[in-house]
């Protein structure tokens, strides 16, 4: 009985994978938009994500996002609050652990990363209008699960890879490279524990690996939609 079930499951997976392999990029993206609830996301203007960032210590983290591309991350390192912000024009941060608590402009490479994160709908939605290029590189696996690997060449020239679950069409992993002391270091974000909020899917856990090693984990307790947010908070403070 158990064996019959396993064989049936195997056939179904094989059938599915064979079918999925034939999907075009447009078909994959269409299923991705549907799976994530993009139609419902259009009705959302702000997102507030509150939780914990585990990186040596477990510290509070809050991410506030506003259409079309406003982003503010408030997080604690050594129990001192730091910020990363983007107001649609200027990417800035504070790095109090360096001894300098003042807001500063982000270096170019980090600013590009933040702009990607700030895109309210994500890079894939309306990618042509945004000036990006998306290529389907074929099938791969993430944590032994079959995925579609997509390469996104952004308008600014930066490259990211997204890995979409071959069955659920949700993002399993994002990968890009950061230049650290002249060397390319792989940054990998793993998206887990998807839950529906307002009929939009959100990953409540985001684990980041840096150079192949676990780096930090964002674990959200709550994700709130359409709460009033003052647009001024995204601007770089004077001091």
């Amino acid at each position: 009985m158990k064996k019959k079930f396993s064989v049936t499951a195997l056939i179904l997976v094989a059938f599915f994978v064979a079918g999925a392999q034939d999907l075009s990029l447009d078909e994959i993206l269409s299923k991705h938009y549907q799976a994530m609830g993009f139609e419902n996301l259009k009705k959302v203007n702000t997102i507030i994500m509150t939780g914990t960032m585990v990186q040596q210590d477990a510290m509070p983290v809050k991410i506030i996002r506003m259409r079309p591309d406003h982003y503010l991350m408030e997080f604690d390192i050594q129990d001192i609050t730091a910020y990363q912000g983007y107001d649609g024009q200027t990417a800035w941060w504070t790095t109090p652990w360096t001894g300098n608590p003042k807001p500063q402009l982000m270096p170019d490479d980090r600013a590009k990363e933040l702009k990607s994160r700030a895109d309210f709908d994500g890079l894939l939605y309306h990618w042509k209008e945004k000036g990006h290029t998306v290529e389907l590189l074929g099938r791969d696996t993430v944590d032994k699960s079959p995925v579609f690997k997509l390469k996104i060449t952004k308008k600014d020239g930066g490259v990211e890879f997204l890995f979409l679950d071959a069955a659920k069409f949700i993002v399993q992993k994002r990968m890009y490279y950061r230049i650290v002391r002249g060397q390319e270091v792989a940054m990998e974000n793993y998206f887990r524990d998807y839950r529906s909020v307002g009929d939009v899917l959100f990953a409540f856990t985001q684990d980041t690996h840096y150079g192949g090693q676990p780096y930090n984990s964002l674990q959200f307790d709550s994700i709130e939609l359409n709460k009033p947010v003052d647009g001024k908070i995204f601007r770089m403070p004077a001091k």
């Binding site: 509070p60 129990d79 307790d221």
Partner: peptide, 10 residues
């Protein structure tokens, strides 16, 4: 249960 009040690290 989870604490809901307070600030900073636990």
């Amino acid at each position: 249960f989870k604490l809901t009040a307070g600030t900073k690290a636990h």
